[in-house]
Amino acid sequence: MIDIRNIVKLYKKQEDGRPVEFYALKGFSLRIENHEFLSIIGPSGCGKTTLLKMVDGLIPWDEGEILIDGRSVSGPGPDRGMVFQNFALLPWVDVIANVGFGLELRGVKAEQREAVVLEYIRAVGLDGFEHHYPRQLSGGMQQRVGLARALAVDPKILLLDEPFGSVDAQTRRLLQHDLIRLWERSQKTAIFVTHDMEEAIYLSDRVALMRPRPGSVQEVLKVSLPRPRNEEIKKEKSFVDLKEYLWEQLKGMQLPKS
């Protein structure tokens, strides 16, 4: 279980020569249960990516705590794996090497890596592309590699930072579908950051609605739709109502570009 308590993140920067302070996050609290799929949704710039990176141990915070199963987060760890918005694939190696990268860093030898890596390449539907290089792959395929890489290290918690934000709408649907299938099989805890309301509801058990400036949780909504999910669900009344509700809330929050 992930317990985020009263996180405060303060940024200091120079604006027109004067030092300016602003709170990216203030009083952010959220609890994520094991094996649950939770989305965090909010307007652009509200700090949701910052929060996710804090959970991954990449960014420090100024006040508050983040506890995973009771232990405080002090840096990245083998219990968490992240999927990045702009894929972050190593352009100079092929798909096999990319998927195996996390394992390689941990010192897993190449022979042992191979079986695991090939399995996950198959799982994300990229068999046949093992020796391709990132520049030869479409955006959707690159993200599949990113997903396989995160899964290959078998983390308890999967962190996804707007993973489908850089691909087109059609690819996004396919990826969402595949993500759900993979997650349902794995029973991992997943925290999914997005700005797409439909995506948030479709994928998750719960949706945390974030407000900006300073970033904090406004409301957490339960998604009572049955699993396994399929496309048909998007037409259900409860789905549409939830989506409209989220939009009403988000509409009022839109920020001009800071």
């Binding site: 990176k53 991954d56 141990g57 990449l58 990245p76 760890g77 083998p78 968490r80 794996g81 992240m82 990045f84 702009n86 972050a88 190593l90 990268f101 996390g102 860093l105 941990r106 890489r149 290290v153």
Partner: peptide, 12 residues
């Protein structure tokens, strides 16, 4: 690319 550095950090 900074994002590659960040990614590698996240994998430990």
């Amino acid at each position: 690319d900074r994002s590659l550095v960040e990614m590698a950090r996240s994998f430990g």
